[in-house]
């Protein structure tokens, strides 16, 4: 059984149709990279998967539980889906360690000492143990994003969603975040990443999904996608990205 099944999901904001019938599945251990021009519903698709933006129609399943069923306990299901935000979305009034431990204490009901031990462990994983007592404002963008990843990891999710995790970062700080994501992928974490970091996509993605205007235009393994894109739009988009990042794909 697939870990996630997305079936014909549609979502509009007012008159603006953002997702127009999207379907795909995610297997355990897969890393999917979603690319595409801005405003094509990539972030909205991620927000549909964890029901932060419930779809207007269509179905989403996590394992054998239908998230789009109104009877589903979303608070319980969201614990299994970690999310990393473009602008980090760290709780600004809390120290790094408190950011990571909060969910463990308030949601999982762990006692404080266990929660903080686990939180420290997760901060260590992203290389920030020595910054545990700093507030978000005292950390660099790359460090903040790594705390964001640790915060999501702490809940032991089955799946991690990354919403353009590096696009708000200085070029010099992107590497440290990608490194953490690469390690995660190697450890077998199931991931869905909206990103235009093609180097990352090439090295860890099991599939690249090209989206435009609310549709999936093309989805294939990175090699296939880069060497022989089937769709004309995919071809020109990849070409532009390659130009922008100075990479030969």
């Amino acid at each position: 059984m697939s870990l996630v099944r997305v079936e014909n999901v549609k979502k509009s904001f007012g008159k603006n149709t953002v997702l127009d019938g999207v379907s795909f599945t995610i297997e355990k251990g897969e890393v999917k990279v979603i690319i595409g021009p801005s405003g094509t519903g990539k972030s909205t698709l991620l927000r549909c998967i964890n029901m932060l933006a419930p779809p207007d129609s269509g179905k989403i399943w996590l394992q054998d539980i239908e998230l789009t069923n109104p009877k589903t306990n979303l608070h319980q299901m969201r614990q299994k889906i970690g999310m990393v935000f473009q602008h980090f979305a760290l709780f600004k009034h809390l120290k790094a360690i408190d950011n990571v431990a909060l969910g463990l204490v308030k949601v999982k009901g762990m006692n404080r000492s266990d929660a903080y031990k686990k939180a420290m462990n997760d901060l260590q994983k992203v290389g920030l143990a020595e910054h545990a007592d700093k507030y978000p404002a005292q950390l660099s963008g790359g460090q903040q994003q790594r705390v964001g990843i640790a915060r999501a990891l702490a809940m032991d999710p089955l799946l991690m969603l990354f919403d353009e995790p590096t696009s708000a970062l200085d070029p010099e700080l992107i590497g440290e975040v990608l490194q953490v994501m690469q390690n995660l992928a190697k450890e077998g974490m199931t991931m869905v990443c909206v990103t235009h970091e093609m180097g990352f996509a090439k090295s860890v993605a099991s599939e690249i999904i090209f989206m435009e205007k609310g549709h999936i235009l093309e989805a294939s393994a990175p090699q296939q996608m880069f060497s022989n894109p089937q769709n004309e739009r995919t071809r020109s988009f990849l070409h532009k990205i390659a130009e922008l990042y100075g990479e030969t794909l």
Binding site: R47, L102, K106
Partner: peptide
């Protein structure tokens, strides 16, 4: 709105997020 989303994405309820975040 991202703070609210971040709270919810951890599995907190809307009320918990309002209160703690």
């Amino acid at each position: 709105s991202e703070q609210m989303e971040a709270g919810l994405s951890l599995g907190m309820s809307k009320f918990q997020t309002l209160f703690f975040i």
